[in-house]
């Protein structure tokens, strides 16, 4: 089974978010970058599926050279080879086109990625890739099992889940509890250094959604503490001051 896992290179979930250059650029100072947590689930499941069914894992990132340590980490976790499309991932449409173009070349059985990136939270790329390739896409996937050429999937919906079956190839946007995050071991880290990482040029497709400026939410006022012995006052505040009850 040939699996393609698409990963994002994003600020750690504990990062302080701030901007520079008149709020037009993300401030990378002191920020640690990681594999997107949802992509990390996709990768972990890919490693398990390879253990069960054999095959190979290719990891793909659309990003500039700075993302290579993140890609190497994915190789250390268990991907066999990597492709980096050398371009800034400007919007979902652009990224989806790059992924679809790599995926068409590789004839993968399964294309996995996270349900969304944790920087722009768009959650659009898997469906766009599916549409571009004329394939089904399913997200957010919590259970993914393969039997022969068929997949059995559980997808989360509001207040519950959907059980589905479909034939490979398809695209899945993953989330927990599809697998547990894998931490690279020493052997993985050593071997990752020599695994192939191919850099390819982007197809020159335009961007449709362009961020002009960033904003931060207004600072929160200090909390109003209410005495646990005076909960009537709390109810009163919620009703008459905040007007939320």
């Amino acid at each position: 089974m040939k699996i393609l896992v698409c990963i994002t290179h994003v600020p750690d979930t504990t990062s302080k978010i701030s901007f520079t250059d008149g709020n037009t650029k993300f401030d990378k100072t002191g920020v640690q970058y990681i594999i997107g947590p949802y992509d990390d689930y996709a990768l972990a499941r890919a490693v398990e599926l390879k253990e069960q069914h054999g095959g190979s894992i290719t990891v793909l990132n659309v990003g500039e050279a700075e993302t290579e340590p993140t890609i190497r980490k994915a190789l250390a976790i268990g991907a066999d080879e990597a492709i980096r499309v050398n371009a800034f991932p400007s919007d979902a449409f652009f990224v989806a086109k790059q992924i679809a173009s790599v995926a068409k070349e590789g004839a993968y059985d399964l294309i996995l990625m996270g349900r969304e990136s944790i920087d722009f939270n768009g959650g659009q790329v898997h469906s766009m890739v599916g549409e571009l390739m004329g394939l089904p896409s399913v997200s957010p996937v919590m259970v993914l099992d393969i039997e022969g050429s068929t997949a059995k999937i559980q997808r989360e919906i509001e207040g519950g889940k959907e059980f589905m079956e479909l034939d490979m190839p398809f695209i899945a946007g993953c989330q927990e509890p599809i697998a547990e995050w894998k931490i690279p071991n020493m052997r993985g880290i050593m071997s990752a250094r020599s695994k192939p990482l191919q850099v390819v040029d982007p197809t020159d497709d335009g961007v449709q959604a362009d961020v002009e400026v960033f904003e931060l939410p207004p600072a929160k006022e200090a909390v109003k503490l209410v005495d646990p012995e005076n909960l009537d006052e709390l109810v009163n505040l919620l009703k008459n001051e905040a007007k939320v009850l």
Binding site: P11, I17, F19, I118, D119, F120, N121, Q208, A209, D210, V211, E212, V213, F214, E215, L216, P217
Partner: peptide
């Protein structure tokens, strides 16, 4: 964006 930690003013062309 950034899971509610910021906003992006985005132009759709």
């Amino acid at each position: 964006i950034y899971t509610g930690k910021a906003f992006a003013i985005t132009r759709l062309s």
